[in-house]
Design a binder for these strands. Structure first.
Lengths: 329, 329
DNA sequence: TTGTACGCGTTATCAT
DNA sequence: ATGATAACGCGTACAA
């Protein structure tokens, strides 16, 4: 039946229909003032009638930009990142940009493959949720990327995050207010900036009560949180509370406690981080530090798109976090 | 410092360096046989030395394709979709395609805005995780899209999914094997094909024990599952088990039971669907039907890319599911 | 206010 | 086996 695949129409077609040149159509469509009310109306009518849309690939070639941004993240299946992406996508789409997702799976190879996308002109800007700048992107100007959540160490990339140090102090301070002194900490991967910031907050809040034997590191998985907690419960001097660097590890800690016959919060108070959707539904509902993930994504996109348009990169600003107290503490 | 923003090099530059014409470079890079060992080596050396990569935008304009596919989904923050996207991305990247993510948020407006991307030439193909074909895409050939998880009603779009009817029968059959007869069902949004398939399986398994008062519908959220279950526990004749159409609603059902002082699985056996990462970590760990999400994504991408390359669309094949028995039943 | 014509970086056709 | 060159569809000097 549809013998002739309706041959997508081009600007020439619209021009012919409206009885003007392509230049005029182009101007009209890009909102130039250099076009009379009258002809503009005719052109718009023609566009309406045909359902014409500009070919972004051709426009991109001409303008040397693609109106696409790439989000690089370690694990899209993680609910934390998902919600951030939602915010990015919201703002990007609002400004007429498309969003590409690249999963690194924490593998440098995948990272490199993705970075190549950047070189091919398929992408104008980059949002980094990986906590580091891929090696291949060494020569891409900082004004074309923005980092979310994790500050990127060695350079001038704009960053959107909360004040992790303050959030950790607040969480641990809350536990101390409950009377806890032997408070453990399960952090993210060691050596990472984010991990260091939260650890420092924990340490500062603990002050003289700080005990290095109560600090472990995981990889943000439930299993790693459980393993870390088991390790500490095996020791003679057990903690009475634990501050975890994400909600998954907090769940792991609770499972470990349970395995030892320890009740939560009676025998062990637990605080997580992020407030993923499941945190409030767990049993017991998790006390946790909420990050404004959606808002972080939106802001990151806004900063990046502004930078692409030539604006200065803003000084890093921390978004507000919120300690959500539930029944695990 | 870097005064001259290193002006991305083009094929011409490589050609000059290798002492050949652009045509030859293009041929060499696309693996044509029409190029001698010798010159190919020289070209490869030049590429290596400069780090040149083909400009996909320009190639796309010439070839009339973008090597990008768009994944449309209702909610990227949902772990089910996240894992499917992972599979899609894996296969796509393997074949040199980029993946764009479009979040509809179940809003027709967003859907339309996304669909426009398709018309602009920015995208070659489409993966639908939304359970329906957007209105705007009425004239896009079915060979340029593939649906995952939910069969799309009215037409010939290729679909990748499990056998939902069989899976429901298996889940409910398992409960019946445990001696349950008053088995409730909390389904997804009413009117949706997927919901109907699982309901039908439930009904078939229940046979003469089927009782329409034990069927409710939710929106896949924890809250909706909880509300649905509360409704049934309020009634005189309570169910002794419930089969839920996803894990979130199963968690909601457990919370409702708890609020009524009913233990799980002692007072109420619960089965979920999907086996999201949290299912095994919940208390009690959830019995659930596992869908091979990653594999579904990979297969969908493979089918789509094959179709874009001209292959026939395969007949719908169901991927294997797996009833994972844990402690909630 | 509008039109003409060139170029964005590739690939494919046609010569050679 | 290689080279010259015409598209691909659009935006924008420049001319009118």
């Amino acid at each position: 039946m549809d013998q002739t695949p309706p041959a997508r129409l081009k600007m020439t077609d619209v021009a012919r229909l409206a009885g003007v040149s392509v230049a005029t159509v182009s101007r009209a469509l890009s909102g130039s003032v250099l076009v009379s009310q009258d002809t503009r109306a005719r052109i718009e009518a023609a566009v309406e009638a045909t359902g014409y849309v500009v070919n972004q690939v051709a426009a991109g070639l001409r303008l040397q930009r693609s109106r696409q941004i790439l989000v690089m993240l370690p694990d899209i299946a993680n609910p934390f990142f998902g919600e951030v992406v939602l915010g990015i996508e919201e703002e990007a789409q609002h400004q007429g940009f498309g969003v590409l997702i690249g999963n690194t799976g924490r593998s440098p190879d995948r990272e490199a493959a993705l970075a190549r996308q950047f070189q091919t002109g398929a992408v104008d800007g980059l949002v980094l949720l990986t906590g580091r700048r891929p090696a291949l992107l060494a020569d891409v100007p900082a004004s074309r990327m923005v980092a979310v959540s994790e500050h990127i160490a060695d350079d001038s990339i704009a960053t959107v995050s909360i004040d992790n140090h303050a959030a950790a102090i607040e969480a641990v301070g809350y536990l101390r207010g409950l009377g806890h002194r032997r408070i453990a900490h399960i952090g993210g991967p060691a050596g990472n900036v984010l991990t260091a910031q939260r650890f420092q907050g924990y340490r500062d809040a603990q002050g003289g009560d700080f005990d290095p034997r109560l600090v472990r590191y995981g990889d943000y998985s439930i299993a790693s949180g459980e393993a870390a907690m088991r390790g500490m419960l095996d020791e003679a001097a057990r903690p009475t509370a634990v501050f975890c660097s994400n909600d998954e590890m907090a769940v792991g800690a609770i499972r470990a406690a349970r395995a030892f016959g320890i009740g939560v919060p009676a025998g062990l108070a637990v605080i997580g981080f992020d407030d993923i959707p499941f945190a409030g539904a767990y049993d017991p509902p998790l006390t946790t530090v909420r990050q404004p993930r959606r808002q972080m994504g939106r802001l990151a996109a806004r900063i990046l798109l502004a930078a692409l348009a030539g604006d200065e990169l803003p000084a890093p600003t921390a978004l507000p976090h919120l300690l959500v107290v539930r029944q695990s503490s």
